[in-house]
Write a protein that binds this DNA or RNA. Structure first.
Lengths: 195, 195
DNA sequence: TTTTTTAATTGAACAGTGTTCATTTGTCGG
DNA sequence: CCGACAAATGAACACTGTTCAATTAAAAAA
């Protein structure tokens, strides 16, 4: 088969990301296969290299897509619990990761040799922005200098706890309530920002 | 070549771990090759399966070995700075990871299908125990209930920050001082344990 | 000591992987 | 209608993990 035009370039991108994402969710990064992803999309291996330049860039795009799903999940959870928004964020962070462990892990297990696309970076920045806004609002002084850096430090804090849950480290250490721990640490740090 | 006896079982284990660890440090988990590791140790692929049962178990053993190096690094750093021991721990956590990013990442990027060996678990628990002791000592009340769980929560906190550094996430977000952030969070949480 | 049994080591075989690229075949501007 | 371009293919290559019959040395038994 030679040239087709079943899909535009953008449709093809979306198609490969969608099927790639499904495969990633099923198999995880370690067992992910470009050939299989292409086959499911109805194309052959080479097409990945035409469209994304490399398999790694397809995986990066899949991961960026996961970020979008995740951001949407957080937004929905914030909407459903307008009282304690920090709690909603922390719980939303965890339950997305636990609902989609393979997708979530792939984000952090994948190491890209070259840099992320502009598009990928923007897609990923959305989640960070959501958290930055909420943390700022929860701060004793929302205009505190370095509020955004502080917010990202809190993300890292929650991330560490979540990472231990998904990797099984906490299970090994018989930790009964990792989410509660993460939330407690976040609250302590926010409280410490007064004065 | 048939049966040899150049090495005892334990020597062979150590040999494969040593060469595997060197390869892991050079190439990282994604490009790690069992064949290559075996070749460097002077044996053939099959030997890995004889000794460890599976390639994944060899990788688990390599990672446990990394934990030992890491614990030793922390001990040395604690010895060199007996005044601010929490700072020594946090900095020690980071600079081991940054000195050996491939070894460090392999620990968290590798997902074992079956469970860890007793031996592997013990080897890994050493690092946790060191931190638990130090955190306990730094606590307003060292006999606080749940001190160990709290210590592990702090480890998760530092881990999250470190993970973001090694994966490049923080670099992307222009964070100038991730270690400082981690240390600040840890201090805030410890201080919050009084009362 | 000689023979038998047992255990360790190999490497070919298999099914899969990522990556490249000559070849084919639609699409489109002139 | 045709030539130029672009997209899709899949065979080829060098690798991967995993299995396992065959080989050979060590240990046990005779």
């Amino acid at each position: 088969m030679g040239r087709r035009s079943d899909h535009t370039r953008d449709e093809l991108r979306a198609l490969l990301i969608a099927h790639g994402s499904a495969l990633m969710a099923e198999q995880g990064l370690a067992k992910f296969s470009g050939r299989e992803a292409a086959k499911r999309a109805g194309y052959s291996v080479g097409t990945i290299y035409n469209v994304f330049g490399s398999l790694d860039q397809l995986i990066a795009a899949i991961n960026s897509h996961t970020f979008s799903l995740w951001a949407e999940h957080l937004r929905a959870r914030l909407e459903g619990a307008p009282d304690d928004r920090i709690k909603a964020l922390v719980e939303g962070y965890f339950d997305f990761a636990l609902a989609h462990p393979n997708l979530w892990s792939a984000i952090y297990d994948h190491r890209l040799a070259d840099e992320l696309t502009e598009h990928d970076q923007e897609q990923r920045a959305v989640l960070t922005a959501i958290v930055e806004n909420e943390v700022r609002a929860a701060l004793p002084d929302p205009d505190m200098p370095g509020a955004d850096r502080f917010a990202r430090s809190l993300i890292a804090t929650v991330h560490g706890h979540c990472s231990y849950v998904v990797s099984g480290t906490f299970e090994l250490l018989d930790e009964p309530d990792p989410v509660g721990n993460a939330l407690a640490r976040v609250r302590e740090c926010i409280a410490a920002q007064r004065g």
